Lab assay of single mutants.
Amino acid sequence: LELTLRVGDKTWHFKDVDEEFVRHLEELLKRGAHEREIEEIIREWLR
């Protein structure tokens, strides 16, 4: 999967994204996660 995600003024483009990561992001967005929380999840995933 490829994913382009825009949060606030930042845009990330990922290739070979894990479906579990996408589901986790979807859940965060559904519950109205704040920009900082989403950025933290992305940084963790990139490690």
Rank of each mutant, 00 (worst) to 15 (best):
E40P: 03
D18I: 02
R47A: 15
R36C: 06
I42F: 08
I41S: 09
E37Q: 09
R47L: 13
T11W: 08
G32W: 03
E37K: 07
R43V: 14
T11E: 12
H34T: 15
K10T: 14
G8F: 03
G8S: 02
K30G: 09
L1G: 15
K10H: 13
F21Y: 02
D9M: 05
E39W: 05
L3D: 01
K15E: 06
V17T: 15
L3F: 12
L5K: 00
D18S: 11
V22I: 07
K30W: 08
H34I: 08
E37G: 03
E40Q: 11
K10W: 07
L1C: 07
K30Y: 11
H34Y: 07
G8M: 03
D9E: 09
T4P: 03
D16W: 14
L25H: 00
H34A: 13
L1K: 14
R6C: 02
H34G: 13
W12V: 02
H24N: 11
R23V: 05
R43C: 03
G32I: 04
L29A: 10
W45M: 07
E44M: 06
E35H: 12
R23M: 10
H13T: 11
L29C: 07
R6T: 15
A33S: 08
I42M: 03
E35R: 05
G8W: 02
E27A: 12
E40G: 10
E27C: 06
R47F: 11
E27H: 10
R31W: 10
R36W: 13
E37R: 05
F21D: 04
E35F: 11
L29S: 06
D9C: 04
V17R: 09
I38E: 01
W45I: 04
R23F: 08
W45E: 04
D18N: 09
R36Y: 14
T11P: 00
R47P: 10
V22P: 01
E2I: 09
G32P: 05
H13L: 06
L3V: 11
L29G: 04
D16S: 14
E35M: 08
L5A: 01
E20W: 14
K15A: 06
W12R: 00
R47Y: 10
R47Q: 14
I42G: 00
T4V: 13
K30L: 11
E37S: 04
E35V: 12
H34Q: 14
L29M: 15
I42T: 01
E27F: 08
R23L: 12
H24T: 13
R23H: 10
E44L: 07
H24M: 12
L3G: 01
F21C: 01
K10M: 09
I42A: 02
F14M: 04
I41Q: 08
E44H: 05
F21I: 04
D18H: 11
E19M: 12
I38F: 09
F14V: 04
V22T: 03
R31F: 10
I42R: 00
H34L: 10
E35C: 03
E2Q: 08
E40K: 11
E26M: 11
V22S: 02
H13G: 02
E20C: 04
T4W: 08
R6M: 15
D18Y: 05
L1Y: 15
R47S: 13
L25M: 09
D9K: 05
T4Q: 07
E27R: 09
H24V: 10
K10I: 11
L25V: 08
F21W: 08
T11N: 04
T4A: 07
R31H: 11
V22L: 04
L5D: 01
E19L: 15
E40I: 09
V17A: 13
V17G: 15
R47I: 14
D18P: 12
V17F: 04
W45T: 03
E2T: 10
D18K: 06
E20A: 14
R31L: 13
V7D: 01
E39L: 08
L28V: 08
A33K: 08
L1M: 11
W45K: 03
L28R: 09
R36S: 15
L28E: 07
R47H: 15
H24R: 11
H34M: 09
L29F: 08
R31S: 15
K30F: 12
D16K: 15
R36I: 12
E35Y: 11
H34E: 13
H24F: 09
D18M: 02
E44R: 06
L46S: 04
L1V: 09
D16P: 13
L5I: 15
H24E: 13
W45R: 03
L46T: 05
L25D: 00
E37Y: 12
K30P: 01
L3I: 14
E19W: 15
F14T: 00
G32Q: 05
T11G: 01
E26C: 05
E40L: 10
R43N: 15
R23K: 14
W12A: 00
K10E: 06
H13W: 06
W12D: 00
G32T: 03
E19A: 15
T11K: 03
V7C: 06
K30A: 12
V7A: 03
H24Y: 12
D9H: 06
E35I: 12
K30T: 13
